[in-house]
Amino acid sequence: MVVVIIIAIVVALIIIGRLTDQKEKVYRDEYRKNKRQLRVALSRQEQLATLYFMYRMASVDGEFADLEKHAYTKMCVEFAIAPNDAELMTFITMGDVIPLQILRNAGTKKQDYILGLMIIMMMVDHKIEDAELTLIGETAFKIGMSRERVREISDQIMEMYAQSCQ
Rank of each mutant, 00 (worst) to 15 (best):
M1W: 01
V2C: 03
V3L: 13
V3G: 10
V4Y: 08
V4Q: 08
I6N: 12
A8K: 06
A8V: 14
V11S: 00
L13C: 12
I14F: 02
I16C: 04
I16Y: 06
R18F: 15
L19Y: 03
L19T: 06
Q22M: 15
K23C: 11
V26D: 02
Y27Q: 14
K33P: 06
N34P: 13
L38I: 14
R39I: 15
A41T: 15
L42P: 01
S43H: 03
R44I: 13
E46A: 01
L48D: 01
A49N: 08
R56H: 12
A58W: 07
A58R: 06
S59R: 05
S59F: 01
V60C: 01
V60E: 03
D61I: 07
D61M: 02
E63S: 13
A65Y: 03
D66P: 00
H70V: 14
A71G: 02
T73D: 11
M75K: 00
V77F: 10
F79Q: 00
P83E: 02
P83N: 04
L88T: 08
T90S: 09
T90H: 11
M94L: 15
D96A: 04
V97N: 12
P99F: 02
L100N: 09
Q101C: 03
I102C: 00
R104F: 01
A106T: 02
G107E: 12
K109I: 14
Q111A: 00
D112Q: 07
I120P: 02
M121V: 07
M121L: 03
M121D: 03
M122E: 05
M122D: 12
V124Y: 09
V124H: 10
D125Q: 02
E129W: 04
A131P: 05
A131D: 08
L133Y: 11
T134K: 10
T134G: 06
F141N: 11
F141C: 10
K142L: 14
G144F: 08
R147F: 09
E148G: 14
E148C: 13
E148D: 02
E152N: 13
Q156A: 11
M160T: 12
Y161W: 07
Q163E: 15
S164P: 13
Q166R: 12
